[in-house]
Design a protein around this nucleic acid. Structure first.
Lengths: 254, 254
DNA sequence: TAGTGGTCTAGACCACTTT
DNA sequence: AAGTGGTCTAGACCACTAA
């Protein structure tokens, strides 16, 4: 960190904007390990003094690194190199719950409940769950953590006819459904990517704008009845989903 | 747009930072349609004069909307509301190529080649393709577009023993492999989310930092031989991947 | 209380696009 | 040539955290 923030080497003409030059310097220092995870950077005002740049320029350089999750800023405290997050991989070919998936690979799992409630369904929920008039839904909203690290936000909606009481779910949702004879045997998922909003980012402990994996799942019983409608948001830097694809059988091709 | 940028209504105490208040105003105007896709916003200096805020604050408000793809800025030209992008959905259960997938739903497909070359494999490629010593790889890099809109960047690597000449691929890679008797029947994909870097964002016509869907695929012949290693980056706002999951058969459970 | 990041300002010059 | 976004500065006050 000693010669990282010097005034030397900032020659505008060839190397682009100053804030990008500084950003590159810091990114390389992190990648090379010269700045190790958890270590703190100098205060913004100090960096400005050391480099001869203005504080606004310093902030501009830092901003992208915060947005991409490489740095973390805490007001009143400082700027720090983010902890490395081990990237987990989930097989998508099998229908397993978060809890089962994690414990299979020896990770601890816990949930931080945000809300558990019964209410009138939103139009989106009526559609997804195929609800009749005056049917109600149970909503379970929680942050899923593994080894203490927030990995995903899970927002599940189920008809009260499937899950009468949200208090029944403690750990695994699928385990609870199992005991009720309501475990889905089939599910359809839609996967997309989106920048995390401020609220979701805070729940996951990352900066707003970081890329997240958004997954919508509708689970079915063997009878074809819909039992769950779950919207999850995974940290993009912490999760891989693996899928195995097969060629369509000749007769089935369309 | 007439009363969108007035000085009224910016009372700090209750509503948070000024730039967030303005950002919210603009986002709502876009969502409600008062600002329609393609229409231009006033120049930053004009917005500053109209609202009584400084230009820096205006830029701060606009920045997040640009980062999330709702606005587009063009130097020397202006700030515009982004065109709406129809969200496409791809079934992941079947092994199909981009070209086949798109034409099945009646979209035009074209590719913009970035490079087609033969070279020595990178370590990553040796790993994925299971290459021997002095085997070479064909690299195909292109931007995939549908109806003229860039949707994905595709970077494919194949052993020269599978595809001797990159010039053989014009449209669909899988169609070309088909004629060579080298079409994969099975593939494994890994899906994750990442913020797009400046180069990839430019190729896709979005702003750096926008969330993208990253997909790595390894394709196998019936014999088990690896034929392709493809890394793709999809626009997160334009693509959904759909997957159907099934419960593990009892006997196969582990 | 001292130090940190968060916000905000007024003004400046540059690079680019449009006319 | 005029207008636009892109970059940069010096200085200020606020909100939060830590000792």
């Amino acid at each position: 960190m000693d010669q990282l923030f010097t005034a030397t080497g900032f020659d505008d003409p060839g190397s682009g904007p100053l804030y990008l030059q500084l950003q590159r310097r810091i990114a390389e220092a992190i990648a090379s390990g010269r700045l190790s995870p958890g270590s703190s950077l100098p205060a913004e005002r100090d960096m400005a003094a050391m480099t001869g740049l203005s504080r606004v320029t310093i902030r501009n350089a830092i901003q992208a690194l915060v947005a991409s999750g490489q740095l973390v800023q805490r007001r009143g405290s400082g700027t720090f190199v983010a902890q490395k997050v081990e990237r987990l991989e989930q097989a998508l070919s099998l229908l397993t719950s978060f809890t089962e998936d994690m414990s299979r690979r020896g990770k601890s799992v816990d949930s931080q409940w945000i809300s558990r409630m019964i209410g009138a369904p939103a139009p989106e929920e009526v559609m997804a769950l195929g609800l009749g008039a005056d049917e109600h839904v149970v909503r379970l909203e929680r942050v899923r953590r593994s080894d203490g690290l927030p990995l995903a936000i899970e927002r599940a909606s189920l008809p009260t006819t499937v899950l009468p009481d949200p208090g029944l779910v403690e750990g695994s949702l699928y385990l609870t459904l199992d005991t009720l004879g309501m475990r889905p045997v089939r599910a359809v998922q839609r996967i997309s990517a989106a920048n995390l909003g401020p609220r979701d980012a805070e729940l996951l402990g990352v900066s707003p704008g970081v890329a997240g994996l958004r997954i919508e799942r509708i689970g079915y019983l063997a009878t074809g009845r819909v039992v769950e409608f779950t919207r999850s948001l995974y940290r993009g830097d912490a999760y891989d989903f693996a899928v195995e694809l097969k060629l369509a059988p000749e007769g089935q091709a369309k």
